[in-house]
Amino acid sequence: MGTTRGPRRSAGARAAAVALGTVLLATGCEGDAENKTAPATPSPARPAWKTRPESLASLGDSITRGFDACSVLEDCPEVSWATGTEVDSLARRLLLSPQTSSWNYARTGARMADLPGQMRAAVAHKPQLVTVLLGANDACRADVAQMTPVDSFRADLQSALGTLRSSLPTSQVYVAGIPDLKRLWSEGRKNVLGKQIWKMASICPSMLRDADAVDEAAEERRAQVDKRVGEYNAVLKDVCSKDALCRYDGAVNGYNFTQQELSKWDWFHPSKKGQGELAGLAYRAITADRPVA
């Protein structure tokens, strides 16, 4: 009797353990489940930025049209920072064949509300890079009360980028900051002829009107324009940051244009030299391995 009792108990224990294991497998062990971590879902790979796109379309306003860079109150796209053939433009720096693989859809006087239409025209060429320099005219109005509301500015920018993404999901976008309009007023007002052109051609009256006035009302008006430009640039940066293939370049707003880099006809728009400086800023931002700060 004593030699058989131990083995029988061992066999019974093994049977009980097997039964318990079966129950745990069938029902799951609640305590273990609480300690288990679900496998991490891998993040989608960020699309690679091409530092050497093979085609580009440029959108914007008078700056990108080379306005007042060659003659008074006229466009001169040949010296455009973006697509010009008579300056060391972005297209000439980047592309093997700039004359056949770059397009300029900017229009003098354009505001952000015009960007969706410009984008639709550009998409037809399937550019690998789209440049945007737009927004100064949204602040350059007859009066500060007419400046484009920030929400409308944002909506039009988002609409344009949505048009691009729905047709060309892998095209890249370079968005330049709006130049410092108050800085341009400060530089240009040093030239007597420039101030006469500002008045005669009604150039950016919200900022440049009564150029020599420094009374409280004039200073407040310029401060409102300056503030709105800052708000527009914040929108450009924010909207661009939500697109993996968009780079915002705040260096354009921070660039201190001198009189040599301003048009000798209106002392407000970039001269040929100024256009070249803009091309250089864009080229550095686009060919950088990482987005500029």
Rank of each mutant, 00 (worst) to 15 (best):
A213M: 03
E231S: 05
E231D: 07
E219G: 02
V239T: 02
W198A: 01
V214P: 06
A211I: 01
A223F: 07
I203E: 09
Y232T: 04
V214C: 09
E219H: 03
E231I: 01
E219V: 05
E216N: 09
A234F: 08
M200I: 08
V225K: 02
D215H: 08
A218K: 02
Q224T: 14
E216W: 05
K199T: 11
K227W: 01
I203F: 14
V225D: 14
E231P: 13
V229Y: 10
A234M: 06
L208A: 04
V235K: 14
Y232W: 06
W198S: 03
M200G: 04
A217G: 02
S202N: 10
R228M: 12
M207C: 00
M200V: 12
A213Q: 00
I197N: 07
A223M: 05
S202A: 14
A218H: 00
R222I: 01
D226M: 05
S202K: 15
E231L: 01
A218G: 02
W198E: 14
A234G: 15
S202T: 15
G230H: 06
K227R: 04
M207L: 09
M200W: 15
V235H: 02
G230P: 15
N233G: 11
A218M: 02
L208V: 02
S202P: 08
V214K: 12
A223Y: 04
A217L: 03
R221H: 06
A213N: 05
D238V: 13
D226G: 10
E220K: 04
I197L: 12
K237C: 08
M207R: 00
A211W: 01
I197T: 13
R221V: 03
L208D: 02
R228D: 05
N233L: 00
C204L: 14
A213E: 01
E220L: 12
A223N: 04
D215L: 06
K199R: 13
Q224H: 10
R221E: 09
V239R: 12
R209L: 09
K199G: 06
R228S: 13
K237E: 09
D212A: 05
A201G: 09
V214F: 10
D215M: 08
V239I: 03
V225C: 07
A218Q: 01
W198V: 04
K237R: 15
I203V: 14
A201V: 15
D212W: 02
A223D: 11
Y232R: 07
P205W: 11
L208E: 02
C204W: 08
D238C: 07
S202Q: 13
R228I: 10
E216V: 08
G230Y: 04
S202F: 15
A217T: 00
L236I: 06
E219L: 11
S206Q: 08
E216K: 04
R228V: 14
D226C: 06
K199Y: 14
V235I: 03
C204H: 10
A223P: 14
A213V: 00
V225G: 11
L236H: 13
I197E: 09
V235Y: 07
K227H: 07
V214G: 03
V225A: 11
R221M: 09
Q196A: 03
I203N: 07
E216S: 10
E219C: 05
E216D: 15
